[in-house]
Simulated scan of single mutants.
Amino acid sequence: MDVVDAHCHIISEDPAAYPKAPIGGKQSEWAATRPVTAEGMISRMDETGIAQSVLVQATTHYGYDNSYVLDSCRSRPERFVAVGTVDPLRPDAAANLKATVGAGGLAGVRLFTSGSTVPTQGEWFVAPETFPFWEQAGELELPVCLQMRLGPATAQLVELLERFPGVKVLLDHIGYPDIAASPARAGAEVAELAAHPGLHLKLTHRNLERLRDAGEQAWDFLGPVVEAFGAQRIAWGSNCPAAEQSLPELLALAREVLAGLPERDRQEIFAGTARRLYPSLGDHES
């Protein structure tokens, strides 16, 4: 089966060429203890049987400096596309966004509003100052990965999706729904968001581990979510090396949890959705 990893991170061994500059000034633990270079990622992909990957900026290591993911994609365009972190609050955000895409540029962008080093959920991603950014992203048909936590900020997400229905928003880690507390309740909350056609889901180990632990109740989440969104709006990402498991283990986890889905749905989740979101991947399909 064709596999595209829609979410992995790389870190250079050359801090002089690619200096550390984490958002908020705090480096993530995984970036310090188990970094993987672009070359190392290719080795892991080959070991796992993964054709291509989306290099998502390691925001908690490089902040807004996307040099390393861009350089890595330019050197191996048959294996990688780049998603870089940007600041949509910049007065020149729209012009800057337009300048970063295209041949040899970013295939998508990421807004980092919450995470292990940013525990307080930011709601600035829908501030009026960001509207030119969102308008430009829509005009460019550029996917925007949104790292956020569902909950109090879900209202802001809905506001964004309603205001900019043409923008493709890819919700990292599905917004960390609380599957462990109640797969059914979490599934219903996520499925409700499918009413917004621009919203896509990125399924990673942060969700898959909870679903594996839920056993048969995993389908109380997966059933309504897949039915509401369709597999065509769900993409798998490993989150390697932020995840502690190896890349083969992360892919095996996904295959185990999703084994009950029809093959056509698994094909979409493991590759088809990513290839539509990032058309340049299709130019190098193996």
Score class of each variant (00 low, 15 high):
Ile10Met: 06
Ile10Val: 15
Ile11His: 04
Ile11Asp: 10
Ser12Ile: 00
Glu13Ile: 08
Asp14Gly: 07
Pro15Lys: 08
Pro15Gly: 14
Pro15Trp: 10
Pro15Tyr: 10
Ala17Cys: 05
Ala17Gly: 11
Ala17Met: 04
Tyr18Ile: 00
Tyr18Ser: 05
Pro19Ile: 15
Lys20Asp: 02
Ala21Asp: 14
Ala21Val: 01
Ile23Trp: 04
Ile23Tyr: 05
Gly25Ala: 08
Gly25His: 08
Lys26Gln: 09
Lys26Asp: 04
Gln27Thr: 07
Ser28Leu: 01
Glu29Ala: 14
Glu29Arg: 02
Trp30Thr: 06
Ala32His: 02
Thr33Asn: 14
Thr33Ile: 03
Thr33Pro: 03
Thr33Lys: 12
Arg34Asn: 05
Arg34Gln: 09
Arg34Ile: 06
Arg34Phe: 05
Pro35Thr: 07
Val36Leu: 15
Val36Ile: 08
Val36Lys: 09
Thr37His: 03
Ala38Asp: 14
Ala38Phe: 01
Glu39Thr: 11
Ile42Leu: 14
Ser43Trp: 00
Ser43Met: 02
Met45Tyr: 03
Asp46Val: 04
Asp46His: 01
Glu47Ile: 07
Glu47Gln: 14
Gly49Ile: 03
Gly49Pro: 02
Ile50Gly: 01
Gln52Cys: 11
Gln52Ser: 12
Ser53Thr: 13
Val54Trp: 02
Leu55Val: 09
Leu55Met: 06
Leu55Phe: 02
Val56Thr: 12
Ala58Ile: 00
Ala58Pro: 00
Ala58His: 10
Ala58Met: 07
Thr60Met: 10
His61Thr: 03
Tyr62Leu: 04
Gly63Met: 02
Tyr64Pro: 12
Asp65Tyr: 11
Asp65Glu: 11
Asn66Gln: 13
Ser67Thr: 09
Tyr68Trp: 13
Tyr68Arg: 13
Val69Glu: 04
Leu70Thr: 15
Ser72Gly: 14
Ser72Arg: 07
Ser72Ala: 15
Ser72Thr: 14
Cys73Met: 15
Cys73Leu: 11
Arg74Val: 13
Arg74Gly: 09
Arg74Tyr: 11
Ser75Pro: 13
Ser75Asn: 14
Ser75Asp: 15
Pro77Met: 08
Pro77Ile: 01
Glu78Val: 11
Arg79Glu: 02
Arg79Tyr: 05
Arg79Asn: 09
Val81Arg: 08
